[in-house]
Deep mutational scan, measured.
Amino acid sequence: RTVKALYDYKAKRSDELSFCRGALIHNVSKEPGGWWKGDYGTRIQQYFPSNYVEDI
């Protein structure tokens, strides 16, 4: 599953992803609480806010 970032996001913790608008995040798994995990660049299975992305 791949999603596309709608907005920039700067990680606030070491287990979160930072990305820019338009970024493609791969291998996404839905987690409870509005935070999902995914791969972006060299960061593997890190958290990001689900309301910052859309399915593609």
Score class of each variant (00 low, 15 high):
36 W>G: 04
32 P>F: 08
37 K>F: 06
34 G>M: 11
18 S>M: 00
47 Y>L: 13
55 D>L: 05
42 T>R: 14
47 Y>T: 11
15 D>W: 07
28 V>N: 03
3 V>M: 13
35 W>M: 09
2 T>E: 08
42 T>M: 13
22 G>F: 02
31 E>I: 10
35 W>E: 09
2 T>F: 03
50 S>P: 09
24 L>E: 12
5 A>Q: 02
18 S>E: 14
18 S>K: 01
52 Y>M: 14
34 G>R: 12
2 T>H: 04
40 Y>F: 14
26 H>S: 14
51 N>Y: 10
34 G>Q: 12
38 G>P: 01
20 C>Y: 08
30 K>M: 12
30 K>D: 09
39 D>N: 06
2 T>W: 01
33 G>E: 08
32 P>I: 15
2 T>V: 14
46 Q>K: 12
15 D>Y: 08
25 I>M: 01
50 S>Q: 06
54 E>T: 08
15 D>K: 05
21 R>L: 02
47 Y>H: 05
48 F>K: 02
8 D>R: 05
18 S>L: 00
19 F>L: 02
54 E>K: 14
44 I>V: 14
4 K>E: 09
53 V>T: 10
43 R>D: 08
41 G>H: 10
12 K>W: 06
28 V>L: 00
5 A>G: 01
8 D>P: 10
9 Y>P: 03
4 K>Q: 10
51 N>S: 15
13 R>W: 02
54 E>I: 06
17 L>V: 06
23 A>W: 02
29 S>P: 07
47 Y>I: 04
46 Q>D: 03
13 R>H: 08
54 E>G: 08
45 Q>G: 08
48 F>P: 01
47 Y>A: 10
5 A>P: 00
31 E>K: 11
55 D>F: 09
9 Y>K: 02
40 Y>W: 03
15 D>A: 10
21 R>F: 09
12 K>S: 08
20 C>V: 14
35 W>I: 04
28 V>Q: 03
2 T>K: 09
42 T>C: 09
17 L>E: 02
10 K>F: 07
11 A>L: 00
30 K>W: 07
38 G>A: 02
12 K>A: 10
4 K>A: 08
13 R>N: 07
34 G>K: 14
14 S>L: 10
55 D>N: 13
14 S>F: 14
54 E>A: 11
37 K>L: 08
53 V>I: 04
31 E>Q: 12
48 F>H: 00
22 G>S: 03
36 W>M: 11
7 Y>N: 06
33 G>L: 06
43 R>C: 11
12 K>Y: 05
48 F>W: 02
55 D>M: 15
46 Q>P: 01
15 D>C: 10
43 R>H: 14
16 E>G: 06
31 E>L: 13
36 W>C: 11
53 V>M: 03
16 E>W: 00
23 A>Q: 04
55 D>C: 11
41 G>K: 13
19 F>R: 00
12 K>E: 09
41 G>R: 09
25 I>G: 00
32 P>H: 07
16 E>D: 02
44 I>H: 14
52 Y>P: 01
52 Y>L: 14
15 D>H: 06
43 R>F: 06
54 E>L: 05
22 G>M: 05
15 D>V: 13
8 D>H: 09
33 G>F: 09
32 P>E: 15
41 G>D: 15
2 T>G: 04
7 Y>H: 13
25 I>Y: 01
19 F>A: 03
31 E>S: 13
19 F>M: 03
24 L>P: 02
54 E>H: 08
50 S>N: 08
30 K>C: 12
9 Y>H: 10
54 E>Y: 06
43 R>M: 13
39 D>V: 01
3 V>I: 03
5 A>M: 00
1 R>C: 05
6 L>W: 01
46 Q>T: 06
40 Y>S: 08
44 I>T: 15
33 G>P: 03
45 Q>K: 05
14 S>T: 07
7 Y>D: 08
6 L>H: 02
27 N>P: 02
5 A>F: 01
44 I>K: 13
45 Q>V: 01
26 H>V: 13
26 H>P: 00
37 K>V: 09
36 W>Y: 06
39 D>G: 02
54 E>D: 07
16 E>P: 00
43 R>N: 15
34 G>P: 14
18 S>P: 01
30 K>I: 15
50 S>K: 15
9 Y>R: 03
52 Y>F: 14
52 Y>G: 02
7 Y>P: 03
53 V>P: 00
26 H>F: 14
6 L>M: 10
12 K>Q: 12
14 S>G: 13
8 D>M: 04
4 K>R: 09
22 G>A: 04
32 P>W: 06
32 P>R: 10
11 A>V: 00
50 S>E: 12
50 S>M: 15
32 P>A: 14
45 Q>D: 03
1 R>V: 15
13 R>M: 13
46 Q>V: 03
53 V>K: 00
22 G>D: 09
47 Y>M: 06
17 L>K: 01
12 K>C: 03
15 D>G: 13
26 H>N: 09
16 E>V: 04
51 N>V: 11
47 Y>C: 06
7 Y>A: 14
1 R>E: 12
53 V>N: 00
42 T>F: 10
31 E>P: 07
39 D>Y: 07
2 T>P: 04
39 D>M: 01
19 F>S: 01
19 F>W: 02
22 G>Y: 02
33 G>C: 11
9 Y>M: 00
8 D>V: 00
28 V>D: 02
29 S>K: 08
54 E>N: 09
27 N>D: 11
28 V>K: 04
13 R>C: 09
22 G>L: 00
33 G>V: 02
46 Q>F: 08
11 A>S: 06
33 G>Y: 07
40 Y>L: 14
10 K>W: 07
27 N>M: 03
16 E>C: 14
11 A>P: 05
34 G>C: 08
21 R>S: 08
55 D>T: 10
51 N>G: 13
6 L>R: 10
35 W>Y: 14
27 N>R: 04
48 F>T: 00
24 L>S: 04
20 C>Q: 11
23 A>H: 05
31 E>N: 10
31 E>A: 11
24 L>H: 07
46 Q>A: 14
13 R>Y: 11
32 P>N: 15
13 R>D: 08
44 I>N: 09
54 E>C: 09
19 F>E: 03
6 L>E: 04
5 A>R: 01
35 W>Q: 08
45 Q>W: 01
27 N>L: 00
50 S>G: 12
44 I>W: 06
8 D>N: 12
10 K>P: 05
38 G>V: 02
2 T>L: 07
40 Y>I: 15
32 P>T: 10
36 W>E: 02
31 E>W: 14
47 Y>F: 13
34 G>F: 06
1 R>G: 07
9 Y>F: 03
36 W>R: 03
7 Y>T: 08
24 L>Q: 08
5 A>T: 09
11 A>Y: 03
22 G>W: 02
14 S>C: 11
46 Q>S: 14
52 Y>S: 07
23 A>L: 02
6 L>P: 03
41 G>A: 08
16 E>T: 05
52 Y>H: 09
26 H>A: 11
20 C>N: 13
45 Q>C: 07
5 A>C: 08
47 Y>Q: 10
1 R>T: 15
40 Y>M: 07
15 D>R: 05
17 L>F: 05
47 Y>E: 03
7 Y>R: 15
25 I>T: 01
38 G>K: 00
18 S>D: 09
13 R>T: 06
51 N>P: 05
46 Q>R: 10
39 D>S: 02
50 S>R: 14
14 S>M: 14
40 Y>T: 08
40 Y>Q: 07
19 F>D: 03
10 K>V: 15
44 I>P: 02
16 E>Q: 10
4 K>F: 06
36 W>D: 04
20 C>S: 14
26 H>C: 12
36 W>Q: 02
41 G>V: 01
53 V>F: 02
47 Y>P: 01
36 W>F: 07
43 R>Q: 13
34 G>I: 11
17 L>Q: 01
32 P>S: 13
54 E>M: 07
48 F>E: 00
32 P>G: 11
41 G>Y: 04
48 F>N: 05
20 C>R: 15
43 R>E: 13
28 V>I: 06
10 K>C: 13
51 N>I: 06
37 K>H: 07
23 A>S: 10
35 W>P: 04
48 F>S: 01
25 I>F: 04
2 T>Y: 10
33 G>I: 12
53 V>L: 01
8 D>L: 03
39 D>T: 06
6 L>T: 10
35 W>D: 06
14 S>Y: 07
38 G>S: 00
31 E>M: 13
33 G>D: 10
50 S>W: 06
26 H>I: 12
45 Q>I: 03
35 W>R: 15
26 H>T: 14
33 G>K: 02
25 I>P: 01
42 T>G: 15
24 L>R: 07
40 Y>N: 08
16 E>H: 09
21 R>C: 11
8 D>K: 08
48 F>R: 00
53 V>Q: 03
10 K>E: 11
9 Y>L: 01
48 F>I: 03
12 K>P: 01
35 W>A: 06
55 D>E: 15
41 G>C: 04
37 K>A: 04
17 L>D: 06
33 G>Q: 04
9 Y>W: 09
14 S>N: 07
2 T>A: 08
20 C>I: 09
1 R>W: 15
4 K>L: 10
42 T>H: 15
5 A>Y: 01
8 D>F: 06
8 D>T: 15
34 G>S: 11
42 T>P: 15
31 E>C: 12
52 Y>K: 11
34 G>L: 12
9 Y>E: 01
27 N>Q: 11
17 L>A: 01
18 S>T: 10
52 Y>N: 04
31 E>D: 09
7 Y>Q: 15
32 P>Y: 08
25 I>S: 00
6 L>V: 06
39 D>K: 03
22 G>N: 06
33 G>M: 05
6 L>I: 15
20 C>H: 15
13 R>K: 08
4 K>V: 14
33 G>S: 11
10 K>Y: 11
36 W>I: 04
13 R>L: 04
42 T>E: 15
11 A>W: 00
52 Y>Q: 08
15 D>N: 13
39 D>I: 00
52 Y>D: 00
16 E>Y: 04
4 K>C: 12
41 G>F: 05
45 Q>R: 01
6 L>K: 14
14 S>I: 14
36 W>K: 03
12 K>L: 10
43 R>L: 11
23 A>D: 15
51 N>T: 13
28 V>C: 04
20 C>G: 12
7 Y>I: 10
10 K>Q: 13
8 D>W: 04
51 N>H: 15
9 Y>N: 05
35 W>T: 08
19 F>Q: 03
27 N>I: 03
41 G>T: 03
21 R>M: 07
54 E>Q: 06
